[in-house]
Design a binder for these strands. Structure first.
Lengths: 109, 109
DNA sequence: GGCACTCATGCGCATCTGCGCATATGTCCA
DNA sequence: TGGACATATGCGCAGATGCGCATGAGTGCC
């Protein structure tokens, strides 16, 4: 199941942050690292994984490398997942009366 | 990033098989194990993970337990991912003239 | 060439995952 | 209650993953 490979690639908080950032437009490695608050090697490694999965593309510009989303649809899929998550949490809140906990979970998602 | 938890849950070939099967309708554990070709404990464990993630629901019926998808949207998200994958593969095929390899990959996805 | 800058890569380690296997739990029926 | 059946759970192990760290590789400017 090849699909699992793509999902496995997305199944990482840091990589999702990167994707969310790239959804707003192309960005260089250093800026990504700074905005996300991670080390440059760390971001670079995650970008390499995303690149190998064909989720992002890289383009050299001088000594910087600009990354962009290859296919904007990954963001669409992500937001659908987000919807599923949201419904699950509110459902959880209704059923177990943990509305406050659910609300906090939604905030920090 | 809570979203990663849901994705992490989906990022497994076996679990995707289960979801694909459940997309066609509810199913019991034993039948799932048989149709997918895995051991019963294995399937049961994956179902437990999916259940903890709120992706599937369980309902006891006699001594069997029937599982179903909680939210059909996960399948929608999966098929969008599938589309991303498909485009990536055909793009790969065009660029590197590995059309045959790509076609095989699509078949086995 | 030498140097500063940006990014990529290799390595070791702690942690997590998925699996097979044995076994516990739960349900029905005689 | 005892036994057969369906499902769940605990355990140990091999492989994968994410991280920090040091360092290599590519680029531009003097």
């Amino acid at each position: 199941m090849l699909q699992a490979e793509v999902l496995k690639t997305l199944a990482n908080p840091r990589r999702l942050e990167i994707i969310h950032r790239l959804a707003q437009g192309p960005c260089e490695v250093g800026r990504l690292a700074e905005e996300i608050g991670a080390s440059q090697p760390n971001i670079s490694q995650h970008l390499s994984v995303l690149r190998a999965a064909g989720i992002v593309d890289a383009e050299r510009d001088g000594r910087e490398v600009r990354y962009r989303l290859t296919d904007p649809d990954v963001v669409v899929a992500c937001s659908i997942m987000r919807g599923v998550l949201q419904r699950r949490l509110t459902r959880l809140g209704r059923l177990s009366h943990l509305d406050q906990a659910a609300a906090e979970l939604i905030e920090t998602q």
